[in-house]
Amino acid sequence: MNLRTLFYVLSAIFLGFLIPYLIATYLFNKEVLSPEQQLANAMWRGSIYSLFALGYALIFSILGLLNLAHSSVFMWGGYIGLMSVLKLDMPIWVAMPVGMIGGGLVAVSVDVIAFMPLRRRNAPRISQLISSIGASVILLSLATLIFSSTPKRFPQDSIDALPGTADKPLTWLLDNANVRITPIQIAIFVIPIVLMFLLEYMVNSLKIGKAMRVVAFNQRIARLLSINVGNIFAFTFFLSGVLAGAAGVLQGLAFNSMTPYMGATVALKGLTVIVLGGLGNIRGAVVGGFLVANIEIMSIALGYGWLSDAVVFSSLFLILLVRPQGLLGESGKMRA
């Protein structure tokens, strides 16, 4: 099962990176400067997209609902991690889980405030969608008020404190090619994949994960099986918040700039990713994340940077023409 995921990730890279690369080089004689480095760039951008989209997909699979406040939870998780370092002097490996748990709690409060009252009244999905937009705006305004809109970043020494980073960037030599990868970028690549495997394991093998799948399949059955559906919802929101928080902290660490608006850029990308991967499909979210990142980086590498968004959305359009349910989506029922 997990090997299959890896296979899918590799196919995403193949589709999004290798094929355009080969076509450009051999058919159009267009040179890609340092493709190895660009591949590395695509890998960690993809990791963050995947991690972000995972939480989106998780909620969609369980509630059949888009939580448009997810990008604000992502931003809050990042800021909670940042504040733990700035104000409480926590080392980064403590601040990271703090940011994740913080993101989880913010997500649970989004559920309690924006979704629960509407769920109780059996409100239509569209009201819940609008309500989540409202929650997103409130979270954004609160963050602007508390953290101000001035860009902030993790102090350099918090990043240097990571094991093995004392000596600045590591340089990997691959057949005369210089690929520069900082330890933080390795962490950014490894952490989402570890989290993704944990999530898959949890959903497929643990009791609570199975309960989530039952809720996703049919809430009535879940209730009759003594599953507390409200708790499962809260837990799902918590998990998605944890994933978003991890993505937020990693994004802050990776790219050295955080503002309350950091969620806005990722929000649309995340949506694209899960539609591309197959709505509510966990593996699809990961594959979609890598695919979108690879397409973006490749379009920049080929010198069409200003077109990268257009390229991404055209690919989305093309893929949906061929597979309306998304790459890994199953037609008909969604599944966790």
């Binding site: 009791k207 199975k210 799948r213 399949f217 049919n218 099986l225 599953i227 029922k333 599944r335």
Partner: peptide, 15 residues
């Protein structure tokens, strides 16, 4: 629970 196996369905009974 259609997408789960027979065994898993029974296990969910004992949730």
């Amino acid at each position: 629970i259609a997408p789960m196996t027979v065994q898993e369905n029974l296990e969910m009974g004992a949730y």
